[in-house]
């Protein structure tokens, strides 16, 4: 059995009648990058804050590195680095002082060399003695990462870490996270509302909606290319449906809208479908396809944002 970095058992947080997190059972294996997906208001931030003891759960249990979080809070948090929502700093202090304070708060007293090495790692060398208030958003994000890493944590919790970063910044961050995982075996739990971002970086993922885990598993299993949602957009839906219903494709139809016929199939079947529709002279505007989970997540996001 894989060692678990984090596991939650029936974790629940309510605010009056509002259930922010509902009976959440989450399992994050040690040494993996775990993507925590969900639309706004799904309960991602609440969960991450509960993992950092910023919010106390209404009920349920959180176990980190095999120990109850609330019982062994300080011992556990000494091994955790985090950026919640956005990296936060004392703007009136230099980046160097911020990092030093952060380290001291975690009980370590790094040497100048160690601090400089960290600035080097996140690409802020030469700017470490500038006041943080003079930093750009991207620089702050890098400094936030340095803060999360300075005490060599075994677990890093990142809440929407790419928000506001430019494309290069996103690539740098991604490669840094992967380096941490590969070189130091750090477990990374990161939340996002962008599936592609999680897909590129995470080993496992969970999708949260209305405080509940909807899907949880390995990314490669969940984002299986063999399970695609195909949208056929015919010029005339009636003609298209008639052609499909008299064939083997009829079992693949999942739903029909005014403008599209939705079907489910593996990626390899797409050329065959295309050929069949052409042979039956079904005029089309186009065929688009998405992986089933992506489609599901997009619907979730759309309803979450609505």
């Amino acid at each position: 059995m894989t060692d678990l970095a984090i596991s939650t058992h029936a974790l629940t947080k309510t605010y009056g009648r509002l259930v922010a997190v509902n009976n959440l059972n989450l399992q994050v294996a040690a040494g993996e990058v775990f993507g925590f997906l969900g639309p706004n208001g799904a309960g991602k931030s609440t969960t991450l804050r509960m993992l950092l003891t910023l919010i106390s759960p209404t009920q349920g249990e959180i176990v980190v590195f095999g120990k109850n979080l609330w019982k062994y809070r300080n011992e556990i948090l000494r091994q955790v680095g985090s950026i919640i929502e956005k990296p936060d700093f004392y703007l009136y202090l230099s980046a160097y002082d911020n990092l030093k304070i952060q380290a001291q708060m975690c009980g370590i007293h790094p040497t100048r060399k160690q601090l400089e090495a960290m600035f080097e790692l996140v690409g802020l060398s030469g700017r470490e003695h500038d006041k943080v208030k003079t930093y750009s958003h991207g620089m702050k994000q890098r400094l936030g990462l340095a803060q999360a890493l300075i005490h060599n944590p075994k677990l890093i919790i990142l809440d929407e870490p790419t928000t506001g970063l430019d494309p290069q910044g996103i690539i740098d961050l991604r490669s840094l996270i992967l380096r941490m995982k590969n070189e130091k075996g750090i477990t990374v739990l990161l939340s996002s509302h962008i599936l592609s971002e999680i897909e590129l970086i995470a080993d496992s993922m969970a999708i949260l909606s209305s405080g509940k885990v909807m899907v949880q598993g390995r990314v490669r299993d969940l984002l299986n290319p063999e399970d695609m949602v195909v949208a056929v957009e015919p010029c005339d839906t009636y003609t298209c449906l008639a052609a499909l219903q008299n064939s083997m494709w009829s079992t693949r139809i999942t739903s029909v809208t005014e403008t599209a016929v939705m079907m489910r199939m593996s990626k390899g079947q797409l050329p065959e479908l295309n050929r069949y529709l052409a042979e039956n002279r079904v005029a089309m505007y186009g065929i688009s396809f998405k992986r089933a989970l992506e489609d599901y997540f997009l619907k979730l996001t759309a309803s979450g944002n609505a």
Binding site: L52, T53, I84, D88, C106
Partner: peptide, 13 residues
């Protein structure tokens, strides 16, 4: 400034 999040997630009660 938001630093309270950072502060309270540190290994001090």
């Amino acid at each position: 400034t938001g630093t309270v999040r950072m502060l309270l997630s540190k290994p001090y009660t």
